[in-house]
Amino acid sequence: MITDFTPYASLFGGILIGLGAVILMAFNGRIAGMTAMLGGVLEPKNPDSPWRLAFLLGAIAAPFIATQFGAEFSFASPTTGVVLAIGGIIVGVGVTYGSGCTSGHGVCGLARLSPRSLVATLTFMATTFATVTLIRHGFGG
């Protein structure tokens, strides 16, 4: 499935992602890691749950509101059903053991020059590349 190369939109979106992370650090003193954010929601008694929930709701609401004003975001999921569910379970287990994902390690961690996050990011980028290559091109390439 071909997707358009969108350097300007992607760069602009990326800057907004970084800006969101900086705002959360400036006001709340917190890392904008989606894994921690979701973890907080799964434990309602955690005192951090309310602000984490607010961040998650904001992240869902912004694109929703934008679409109500006519914005369109391209979306296509090549996987669905059982395969997507298996992928989801693996992601959930992986980010819990790995203590973070693309936002926590890949953006916030690397921005703080954390060696742990560098190792984590290089590892998941490598296994993602390997998985996609294996699925799309098989063992022979």
Binding site: G88, V95, T96, H105, F124, T131
Partner: peptide, 20 residues
Amino acid sequence: LIGGSALFGVGWGISGFCPG
């Protein structure tokens, strides 16, 4: 850390979705 991150990559590669 490494095993969890490696596993996350496999799931990301299967689904195309990361949590963020």
